[in-house]
Design a binder for these strands. Structure first.
Lengths: 197, 197
DNA sequence: CACAAATTTAGGTCGGACCTAGTATTCTGG
DNA sequence: CCAGAATACTAGGTCCGACCTAAATTTGTG
């Protein structure tokens, strides 16, 4: 990575971290982009250049988050999409991956307190679904791609509900988080298996 | 209904219609609220009073749309939620209900051309899901409400995919719309039945 | 008819998204 | 190693949606 790229990334993370600190302290809507720029000691326009929308300051993992299920399916062509996603989920759970919702309680509280950020999160789950649809093997019968799209939707829904579960338990300060999520995941994937397995 | 209420509704619909005409002609983002107010011959603030967000000018049926699946389940306590929603869907399909996505091709094109409006539609589907969760019978076992939430998510996803299907076919000017949607619905609900039926 | 209540209006502020022109920094080929 | 190209950042704007307040207008009621 060149010096230019390193500096750019540094500026970006500098801004992102300054923003998250301010957002946690005073709430997402309680902080203006100008204040973020001041705190990060850059011009307002630099913030806008790096982060197209204010919400993007918060969800820096957006791209990884959106692509993850599609990658799971593509990287396990031998298994069914259902099995690839389910197994990928349990593996990521043991790693406490941020893609499943693992985060600090302040972060969770900050996002939940903002309608704008919750809407952005909703959109991220929807984009995930779109990526997964694109990664699914195209069905042979014409017009029957409704089943593929439904499969992607249902799988993404399970991931989303489990994400919410992780956040609920994080927010409640639960000690048994992983155990409880593992059980919830087993139930939710088990429910879906007769339809998609 | 009092004169006051009638006049208010009249003003509201007057604004909504003027807005939709302008949006179809010049695109959602190509029209400002001030222009809508001028076209409807009211003050800008009157538009804002009636429609909290610009998107609300377009989706006037929002409330009916969001509440519909929850109502289907509540009004058929003898059937399973799955059967209530499925049967309700097929009934509404024969009526070409706007709740399923039946609309003019210009309207569909206008909404699809706007990222903002598509995001608002996504949010409407999510709100539907929340209403449906609240309407579902609470499960007895504690912690197993994940299955109820998943059921609501999957049912709402099917409704959403079929909504998209209606829009796809409308946009393509398909003559056989209802027949094709009926087939797609049978497949999607059939896929889900082993999990939720 | 007078007064209360609801609705609309006028004229603002604020902040996010976006634009342009110009400056500063890093990279690359001769 | 230096000049010019490419990229990153800055300064200072415009536009518009969301929101506010105070006042005017219209409608309902005792």
């Amino acid at each position: 990575m060149s010096l230019r790229e390193r500096k750019k990334l540094e500026t970006r993370q500098n801004i992102s971290h300054a923003a998250t600190r301010l957002f946690i302290a005073r709430g997402f809507e309680g902080v203006t982009i100008a204040e973020v720029a001041d705190a990060a000691r850059v011009a307002k326009m630099t913030v806008t250049n790096h982060f197209g929308r204010k919400e993007d300051l918060v969800f820096d993992i957006r791209n990884d988050f959106v692509d993850w299920p599609a990658k799971l399916v593509q990287q396990a062509p031998s298994r069914t999409p259902f099995a690839a996603v389910r197994d990928g989920y349990f593996a990521a759970l043991e790693e406490r991956s941020a893609l499943l919702g693992f985060a600090g309680i302040e972060f969770v509280g900050m996002v939940r307190a903002s309608v704008t950020l919750m809407a952005a999160l909703t959109q991220m789950h929807r984009d995930r679904e779109q990526q997964l649809v694109a990664a699914l093997p195209a069905p042979e019968a014409p017009g029957s791609d409704i089943l593929a799209r439904a499969a992607a939707a249902h799988l993404t829904s399970v991931l989303r509900l489990l994400f919410d579960e992780v956040w609920d338990l994080t927010y409640a300060g639960d000690e048994d988080l992983v155990t409880k999520v593992r059980e919830a995941a087993a139930k939710a994937f088990g429910q879906l298996e007769p339809a998609l397995g």
